[in-house]
Amino acid sequence: MRRVLIGGRMSLLALLQVCCVAAFALLLIAAGWQDLRTMRIANGLSLAVAASFILWAGAGLLLGSVTMSQIGWSAGCAIAVFAVGALAFAVGAIGGGDVKLLTVASLFAGPTRQFDFLAVTAIVGGLLGLAILAGAPIGPSARSQSHVGALRSGLPYGPAIAAGGLWVAASLLMA
């Protein structure tokens, strides 16, 4: 994210973009924590991430740091992630809340950070699965079942999505 300085200070629009990325990060943490505790991700969290992206993109358009083409490509990436996620949901491989959170987080990732976002998400998700198999009490079902039974009944994937999204947020703030 290119900072626009006016008289040595960050413009209000650039500050709004930073606040939107910070909100994105906090919403991801909240979604990951909620999923870890309840195996559910509230729709409101995903909607808030989408609203944060809309504000971020609008401020970027006004600043000239984001183009309509970039927003279109980000939307295209999110649609592709949703399509694959919907197929995974249809076969029971992933939850609906996970699909929604992946989709809206993909908006911030856009085409330039999409691979990193999905790679970090997959790696952290794999590590969570291995931790459950090793006996770590992760998720609400882990307390009442065997390790393999806990993994079969559901892996809370929100923390993995949050990790991938936090990678994107850090990348946006450092750009």
Results as ranks from 00 to 15, higher is better:
residue 1 M to P: 00
residue 1 M to H: 01
residue 3 R to C: 00
residue 4 V to A: 08
residue 5 L to T: 05
residue 8 G to C: 01
residue 11 S to P: 08
residue 12 L to T: 09
residue 15 L to K: 08
residue 15 L to W: 11
residue 15 L to I: 13
residue 18 V to N: 10
residue 23 A to E: 05
residue 29 I to C: 11
residue 31 A to K: 09
residue 32 G to C: 07
residue 34 Q to C: 07
residue 34 Q to I: 11
residue 35 D to V: 08
residue 37 R to F: 02
residue 38 T to I: 07
residue 39 M to F: 14
residue 40 R to M: 14
residue 41 I to W: 12
residue 42 A to R: 14
residue 43 N to P: 11
residue 46 S to M: 09
residue 47 L to F: 12
residue 50 A to V: 08
residue 52 S to Y: 06
residue 53 F to Y: 15
residue 54 I to P: 00
residue 55 L to H: 02
residue 56 W to A: 03
residue 56 W to P: 04
residue 56 W to E: 04
residue 57 A to I: 04
residue 59 A to G: 14
residue 59 A to V: 13
residue 60 G to H: 11
residue 61 L to F: 11
residue 63 L to R: 06
residue 63 L to D: 14
residue 64 G to A: 11
residue 64 G to E: 11
residue 64 G to T: 10
residue 67 T to C: 06
residue 67 T to I: 09
residue 69 S to M: 13
residue 70 Q to H: 02
residue 73 W to I: 13
residue 76 G to T: 07
residue 78 A to E: 02
residue 84 V to L: 13
residue 84 V to E: 00
residue 86 A to I: 04
residue 87 L to E: 01
residue 87 L to D: 01
residue 89 F to C: 04
residue 91 V to I: 15
residue 99 V to L: 07
residue 100 K to M: 09
residue 102 L to Y: 06
residue 103 T to A: 15
residue 103 T to E: 07
residue 107 L to V: 07
residue 107 L to R: 06
residue 107 L to S: 10
residue 108 F to W: 12
residue 110 G to H: 07
residue 110 G to L: 04
residue 111 P to R: 12
residue 113 R to L: 15
residue 114 Q to I: 10
residue 114 Q to N: 00
residue 115 F to V: 13
residue 117 F to Q: 00
residue 119 A to C: 06
residue 122 A to W: 01
residue 122 A to G: 02
residue 125 G to I: 04
residue 127 L to R: 05
residue 129 G to F: 03
residue 129 G to A: 15
residue 130 L to V: 09
residue 131 A to F: 03
residue 133 L to K: 11
residue 135 G to Y: 10
residue 135 G to H: 12
residue 138 I to V: 15
residue 140 P to C: 13
residue 141 S to M: 10
residue 146 S to P: 02
residue 147 H to P: 02
residue 148 V to P: 02
residue 148 V to S: 11
residue 148 V to R: 15
residue 149 G to M: 10
residue 149 G to S: 14
residue 149 G to P: 06
residue 152 R to A: 12
residue 152 R to F: 05
residue 153 S to Y: 08
residue 156 P to E: 05
residue 157 Y to A: 10
residue 157 Y to T: 06
residue 158 G to E: 01
residue 159 P to T: 05
residue 159 P to H: 05
residue 160 A to L: 05
residue 162 A to H: 03
residue 162 A to Y: 01
residue 163 A to H: 08
residue 167 W to F: 12
residue 168 V to T: 10
residue 172 L to A: 08
residue 175 A to W: 09
residue 175 A to H: 09
